[in-house]
Design a protein around this nucleic acid. Structure first.
Length: 482
RNA sequence: CGGGGCGUAGCGCAGCCAGGUAGCGCACUUGAAUGGGGUUCAAGUGGUCGGAGGUUCAAAUCCUCUCGCCCCGACCA
């Protein structure tokens, strides 16, 4: 069965991805090019992502609010780098109420500007700080090429926007939220991630520093899964967010922003999926367990279904998201494959033999075949057994993904080896880096690989740059990326 | 916007070169038998062949124009 491996031909992997997303009813293409319809199964997954993140945001003192979809064009122009970065991908509204507007409105590509403006109205004193607000919203970026979940014209996300009295506090907030994202990715999505700082070329338009968590997909490519930006006083100055500090001096606020989008759903699909289809981590899966009743004769059906209902009710009462598959026109084998494709972590089989023994069979999604089966799980205590098994699966998925990431993270001594790795197995390449932005551009042009990040845990190691031969203490992760 | 490809049933495709009553697989409907790993058999439903014009006795097929989509590149959470 499908041992996950680096798929050398990216177009095959693309086809696999698109097929899985559509067959499992996560999402579909809309009649408007580049826009995505998120179907109930996919949306439930997103809701679970939202809940897990919101819990963490509340724990770190943040509150939710909502800002408008439309932003005056002039707002974007207030921050030079920001407008330069976003201008090519703006959707612009020029008419309303049957008339041409005095000033065009852009559909938000991100909300730093409108929120910056509001913060300038709200903040007068250091006593008003910090402001720690998050919003759940949709944004629009007119991308040239789109892909379900990974890059769509409109996407859903959360964007946190904070304002602080001091640089240190804002930097701390930026890194705190990066850690929140990493914690979410690892402990909820079971995706190991590389935390690091973006290169100048790759950072957010208008930021002083951008941080990212980079995850490895099943084909070895990197996916920027969330970002956290230290914006310095750039937006504070642009939007006149001024306050009196404790020394009675006027100062500009230090701001941050951080976001995670529906792209995370794409990350979950690509980090865990195999030839059977989806493999969803128990903590986020819409259905954590599915009960499949099995029978031959009508006489058996009633008893099997009765026990199925009893087990499903017990699990529901214990807080397990469980589905009882009562479809009687389909064979058990069909259902097994159906739910495996949909990524349900745990299948609970109940047949006539199990009814006799008052026991059930567990089958793990993450361990294929007989090896992943546990026979004779007593119905008494099935809730605890299920919860334990879900924890085991969650841990197993993280371990598997971590093993994959470690196995596909390599170091190279020179550019030739670098190119060989990219043409061969792919994955992350960790190297000492002492090059310039132009060197980075050249490597991108020649190999399509980019600096994904300078990982936070590896800086300050003395080395020799693989590309320029310069001495350096910076370490970079290169990879091909979505 | 540059380079390549494709538009025929809900999906995937054949038919086109050599014009002659629109086909296959999957899905869907009905019935029967099946049912511990994607059941089987039988009978059905469903298509202005992307659109417009032309050639012809006759066009999915040949010609002209047009529209749309996909892939590769520039952009990007």
């Amino acid at each position: 069965m499908a041992e996950k491996g680096v798929t050398p031909r990216s177009e095959d992997y693309s086809r696999w991805y698109t097929d899985v997303v559509q067959k499992t009813e996560l999402a579909d293409y809309s009649p408007v090019k580049g826009c995505m319809v998120i179907r109930p199964y996919g949306y439930t997954l997103w809701e679970n992502v939202q809940a897990a993140l919101d819990r963490r945001f509340k724990e770190t003192g943040h509150v939710n609010a909502y800002f408008p979809l439309f932003i005056p064009m002039s707002f974007l122009q207030k921050e030079a780098e920001h407008v330069k970065g976003f201008a090519p991908e703006l959707a612009v509204v020029t008419h309303g109420g049957g008339k041409e507007l005095d000033e065009p409105l852009v559909v938000r590509p991100t909300s730093e500007t409108i929120i910056g403006y509001m913060y300038s109205q709200w903040i007068r004193s250091y006593r008003d700080l910090p402001v720690l607000i998050n919003q759940w919203a949709n944004v629009v970026r007119w991308e040239m090429r789109t892909r379900l979940f990974l890059r769509t014209t409109e996407f859903l996300w959360q964007e946190g926007h904070t304002a602080h009295a001091t640089e240190q506090e804002a930097v701390e907030e930026t890194l705190r939220m990066l850690d929140v994202y990493a914690d979410f990715a690892i402990n909820e999505a079971a995706i190991p991630v590389m935390r690091g700082k973006k290169s100048e070329r790759e950072k957010f338009a208008g930021a002083v520093d951008s941080y990212t968590i980079e995850a490895m997909m099943g084909n070895g490519w990197a996916l920027q899964s969330a970002t956290s930006h230290f914006l310095g006083q750039n937006f504070g100055r642009a939007f006149d967010i001024k306050f009196l500090n404790q020394s009675n001096e006027l100062d500009y606020a230090w701001t941050t922003s951080w976001g995670l989008s529906t792209r995370m759903v794409g990350a979950i699909i690509m980090a865990h999926g195999d030839d059977q289809g989806l493999m969803l981590p128990p903590r986020l899966a819409p259905f954590q367990a599915v009960v499949v009743p099995i029978w031959r004769k009508d006489a058996e059906q009633a008893a099997v279904l009765e026990m199925g209902r009893r087990v499903a009710d017990t699990l529901k009462a214990a807080g397990v998201r469980v589905k009882l598959d009562t479809r009687d026109e389909l064979s058990a084998g069909f259902k097994f494959n159906d739910w495996e494709m949909r990524g349900v972590p745990l299948r609970i089989e109940i047949g006539p033999r199990d009814v006799e023994q008052n026991a059930v069979v567990f089958a793990r999604r993450d361990v294929p075949g007989k090896e992943g089966k546990t026979f004779g799980v007593p119905v008494d205590g099935v809730a605890q057994a299920t919860r334990d098994m879900l924890d085991t699966i969650q841990a197993g998925m993280l371990a598997r993904a971590t093993k994959f990431q470690v196995a596909n993270t390599r170091t190279v001594r020179n550019y030739d080896e670098f190119k060989q790795v990219l043409e061969g197995p792919g994955g992350f390449i960790r190297v000492p880096w002492g090059g310039t932005g132009e060197d980075e551009d050249r490597i991108k042009e020649e190999t399509k690989a980019t600096i994904r990040c300078f990982p936070v845990e590896h800086q300050g190691e003395e080395g020799v740059c693989f590309y320029t031969g310069n001495k350096t203490d910076r370490v970079a992760i290169f990879a091909r990326a979505y």
